[in-house]
Design a protein around this nucleic acid. Structure first.
Lengths: 335, 335
DNA sequence: TGGCGAAAACGAAACGTTTCGTTATTAAAA
DNA sequence: TTTTAATAACGAAACGTTTCGTTTTCGCCA
């Protein structure tokens, strides 16, 4: 049906080898160049990627694996990753594992069975050993958002500690002394980092931490909702709350709406990730914004450099600065 | 490096053909079955999909093409499509075209160059002829969300007319007489349908339409913002507004917040698509919810049935029911 | 025991490329 | 003109499968 390189060779009178050479950027006499171009146009020749892949052992495809396709933080990163990859001739197979470690393994296998040349992923955290095996097979892996100590691969993430530190600092300088935090699940990298920033800010400003105000959710809407309620039910509730990801911020806002709590008079709130949220919630929500575009692009570029063997160095941790938007949702107790 | 079918053959003492037959579900003596299984396990044999694809001319991959990966309505559908496909041994390559018709073409080409067996897409609307060519090549295409008259392929969409009709009807029976609508871009399928429902409801209830209250946006946040402002600046502003997609609903809410307009006292609002939005906006937002899960699954199943040649019939239009949630954002003028 | 037929196994070609080692062509140098 | 060196083109093998037509095996019945 479709024209093959053989047809192009026949049309031009050249050998298959020459045509192949030209297609792959090799030097060819000017007149042959013209001739081949003509043949390709006339015959509507398209290279057969499967045949090529069979020979080269490369699929020119990267795997992208994220916890959820319904989380705009991740999909927005994916969009940017894809764009860079595409510009460099790579396509991507996108999968989500629905926050399920079992599925994470499966989809990882799946990607490998599709012979992806490299992988960009947001790891769940409980499959370190398995992922390390993949790395050892020689498949470049780049982590996004989360870092696993026992996997030796590049990683791109937001500067969580400072992000969190800055947010808490702003609350403290505005006179807040009882600050609640809704963290992610324990043992997850970002949870630990964001909590670290919270603690450090308290230490630096010599503000005591009430352990009752440090709660752990699951990074999902429902747990944000539940944890906010729990915080408000503490005997002496906090005057401000910091929620450490987008979904939980959603949940927290829902809970606040339901309880008819006034922001910022009854509670100050700083959320995470989604800049649009800031303008939808009323009064406008203060928020820590991660640089999704930069994260995605950085990860893609690192993967590409590994794929081209430009970068053979040992894995690096790349931290990208976040932005803190303080809006109306934060009350100041100072004059 | 990796074991091939040849190695398996050698290990078992059988021929390549026999091993291949077994791998593909053919009958083999029980003892050989056991033997091959052992070999596969010991050698860690994985089939080379490129070699297989070269022979079979099938990649077991579907292309998914959507306007934006940053729109949760689409990504949520993608997630569900992927799940069904994966269960049936198909992987998917997901692309977005960033609402850009040129890019739509490019990415379509890209998917085809990747030799996808079929395509599920949300068409932009301006590349009908081009897509029709793809269909004529014999590549099954399934449209989601939008229907293009001059492309002969299956399509899965929400019952937009009734969705819109029901929303407007609820406003009318609550006593609203001046109802604004923020439509999508002209000439887009969903725009027309949603507008049709608006008109029909007015007709059925004998309410006049003021053309000044019918505005067209671009289905993006910014245009929702702008159009809401424009509606409120009409000399005699509407008492209710229906916004016809998620992004524009976001924009509309932002504008309302900025202008400090009170919902529902000064304006009643019905939005679209995202059920979470309902609970985040205060007072809680009324909303038309599309069945994302069902849409995705239906589309995937249709594609699969085409790929297996189970379904050779002519293209069908599948309409799925939407849900209307009336919350606090709608005021009633009737006691 | 010999012959038969079904079931299982086999051999080899083919899919469309890339690539390596070799040969042909060309232009400049001798 | 002949030689040389560089450049371009070529032929053929190989990548790991599937598949088709053929051969082998084996149990069963006459």
């Amino acid at each position: 049906m479709a024209a093959t390189i053989k047809d192009v060779a026949k049309y031009t009178g050249l050998s298959i080898a020459t045509v192949s050479k030209y297609i792959n950027g090799g030097r060819v006499l000017e007149k042959n160049k013209v001739l081949i171009d003509e043949a390709i146009r006339v015959l509507d020749f398209k290279i057969n990627e499967m045949a090529r892949g069979l020979k080269t052992n490369r699929s020119m495809t990267a795997g992208i694996l994220i916890p959820s396709l319904e989380n705009i933080f991740f999909t927005s990163i994916v969009s940017n990753v894809e764009n860079i990859l595409l510009q460099n001739g790579y396509s991507s197979i996108v999968c989500d594992y629905r926050e399920n470690p079992e599925l994470e393994k499966e989809k990882l296998d799946f990607l490998i069975s599709k012979m992806v040349d490299g992988i960009i992923m947001v790891p769940h955290g409980s499959n370190s050993a398995y992922i390390q095996q993949v790395v050892e097979k020689g498949i470049p892996v780049v982590f996004i958002d989360r870092h696993l100590k026992d996997v030796h691969c590049d990683v791109v993430l937001a500067d969580n500690i400072n992000a969190s530190y800055d947010a808490i600092e702003q609350l403290i300088v505005r006179g807040h002394k009882r600050i609640g935090i809704i963290c992610g699940p324990k043992n997850i990298f970002t949870t630990e980092e964001r909590l670290k920033g919270y603690i450090r800010a308290h230490e630096d400003y010599a503000v005591d931490i009430d352990k009752k105000l440090v709660l752990f959710g699951n990074y999902d809407v429902e747990s944000g909702y539940r944890m906010l309620n729990r915080l408000m039910d503490v005997k002496k509730p906090p005057t401000a709350i910091f929620v450490t990801n987008y979904e939980m911020t959603l949940g927290a806002v829902m809970a606040i709406n339901e309880r008819n709590i006034k922001i910022p008079d009854q509670i100050s709130l700083i959320g995470f990730d989604n800049i649009q949220l800031a303008r939808i919630v009323k009064p406008s929500l203060s928020i820590v914004v991660q640089p999704m575009k930069e994260i995605g692009e950085k990860a893609a570029k690192i993967l590409l450099s590994r794929l081209n063997k430009e970068n053979q160095g040992s894995p690096a941790v790349n931290r990208l600065k976040t932005e803190l938007l303080i809006k109306e949702s934060v009350k100041s107790f100072i004059d």
